[in-house]
Design a protein around this nucleic acid. Structure first.
Lengths: 68, 68
DNA sequence: TACATATGTAATATATACTTGACATTTTTC
DNA sequence: GAAAAATGTCAAGTATATATTACATATGTA
């Protein structure tokens, strides 16, 4: 549920692996995997860090996503 | 640290108390207080719920905030 | 095919977001 | 200024985001 394909696309546009993005934002590779898969409901702090690295806005990457 | 005055302003524009906003998004009053004060680093799910109630975007309410 | 790299995922542990209840303090309203 | 409403805050508990380790599967590449 709530698979976030937008992060994956933005990450691949930057030619980064999950491991590289994870390190850039300071979390584990497994955490990045879970976030892209929609298994985790990340904190806003982490979302902001992801946006910064991927040069996207919060709304572009997370707006309207329906976590439950 | 990271006091979020934007939420407070948007909340007051809607003429809502912390308790009313808290109930509208499904958390406790204390949690809303802590978020406005910057004591909590909320989840994106909760941020999205707050934006929905206050008719704001994620970037308007949370963009660039420096939680540490 | 074989090897390397990337990603998924399970188990256990820890940090912290969030709850509940209760009381103190501040702000508003009469 | 007093009562009421709103907000701050503390303590103890629960839920969950995240870490670590380890292994499995997928995907690319020689």
């Amino acid at each position: 549920m709530a698979k976030n394909i937008r992060i994956k696309i933005a990450r691949i546009e930057k030619d980064m692996t999950q491991a590289q993005l994870a390190e850039a934002v300071g979390v584990s590779r497994q955490t990045m995997s879970a976030i892209e898969k929609g298994d985790y409901n990340p904190t806003i702090k982490l979302c902001i860090a992801i946006c910064k690295v991927l040069n996207k806005t919060l709304d572009e990457l997370f707006g309207g996503i329906d976590y439950e």
